[in-house]
Design a protein around this nucleic acid. Structure first.
Lengths: 210, 210
DNA sequence: AGCATTCTCGACCGTCGGTCGATAGATTAA
DNA sequence: TTAATCTATCGACCGACGGTCGAGAATGCT
């Protein structure tokens, strides 16, 4: 049977179904046929909207990065929170797992998703670095921070945060996390050149992540 | 034609050919048939030695990590070099590109190799963290370094070094590198809690990498 | 109504990773 | 010398995959 829908609608349907599958089963483990079955379309229709399976992945990643960027911008606007904390919260808000259920959280960052991960990281860095530039430079101006290479510092912090908490490159056990988080906060403060210990209060928020 | 060889010899042949192909064309882009053509064996022979294409990848990665670990241990033994420099050099010596030609260098860390990259990173961290533990703790003892979380600090530095110079997640241009390297050295010194500026002399060595 | 455009279909294609039974060559036992 | 055994090799074959394509249905426009 043939059900016709407006282009953009169908496109979104494919994107939604594919995202759920990629996250649940992994990109490589998800076949185009799996997506077709869920959206209930034929192969030709899929390839009418996307040139390849990978193009779908890229579109999804851009969506995820964009959502994270919006959360970050929202957080950074809130001048009632101390600058350091605001910056840390914006970084924490990138973790895509925050939007998903616990099950998704567990499945998302396996080795099988190396490609998704890698593309995500690149796009996230590209999008987030400029967003964090402003508040960090503000901190430098106010002499809260002290650093010679602000851009590179932001990149490193974003990278570290992502690798430590969104991937499982270090195969940490549950009980390791509190210590790892403390160490991360400590390193971030050092890189920013701010006085140490201010971020301890943020532990609770990170705690939910483990 | 059937040419019989001793098991271990054939195994190495496959490993060598596969490694070159994975590095040159990327893991996913290399088919088992490509490997067969080079080693000049039939499919059955390949699967007599390895259970899957991925098992070959894992064996190769363990080799690469082991080679890096040996280089690191060699460097760390040389007490004539200042401790900080020795540690940095051991980390730099991990970059697998150092063993290959310039061509290989360019091809190695593309998105297509996300899986290789990811597995490498995990194994490298597992192998290198204990190796660096000793000299870093020595530095802490001698009050050259000052840090609360030595293990985590090493992990972070290894991670940063790898991501910044072995991958191309940041799409840096050639001319960006000197600055990025300076920034990296600066961040490393801060994380180690050592006095800044000691590592500037190492720039030349990093220079070759760009 | 006629026509063009947009959207959908599914049969088909080449390639891939992986399987398996047959068998050749080397090794051992008689 | 021969028979039995073991190890290494072969390549036809398999199902699944990502992707192509021409036919045609639904829709919108004149």
């Amino acid at each position: 049977m043939k059900t016709v829908k407006e282009g953009e609608v169908r496109r979104r349907e494919i994107l939604v179904a594919a995202r759920e599958l990629f996250v649940k089963k992994g990109y490589e483990q998800t076949s185009v046929n799996d997506i077709l079955k869920i959206v209930d379309i034929a192969k030709g229709t899929f390839y009418y909207y996307f040139a390849s399976k990978e193009e779908v992945l890229e579109a999804i990643i851009l969506d995820i990065v964009e959502e994270g960027a919006r959360r970050a911008e929202m957080i950074l606007k809130d001048k009632s929170i101390p600058l350091v904390s605001r910056i840390m919260m914006a970084i924490m808000a990138q973790a895509p797992e925050f939007e998903g259920s616990d099950e998704i959280k567990e499945e998302l960052h396996k080795v099988e998703n190396a490609k998704l991960e890698r593309l995500y990281l690149r796009e996230m860095l590209k999008r987030m670095t400029p967003i964090l530039q402003e508040p960090v430079l503000e901190g430098v101006d106010q002499a809260i921070f002290q650093m010679e290479y602000p851009t590179e510092c932001i990149e490193s912090i974003l990278l570290l945060g992502h690798m430590m908490f969104d991937c499982d490159v270090f195969e940490w056990k549950m009980e390791d996390y509190p210590r790892k988080i403390q160490a991360f906060l400590c390193n971030v403060e050092r890189m920013l050149g701010t006085k140490e210990g201010q971020l301890k209060e943020l532990m609770g928020m990170f705690g939910q992540l483990s």
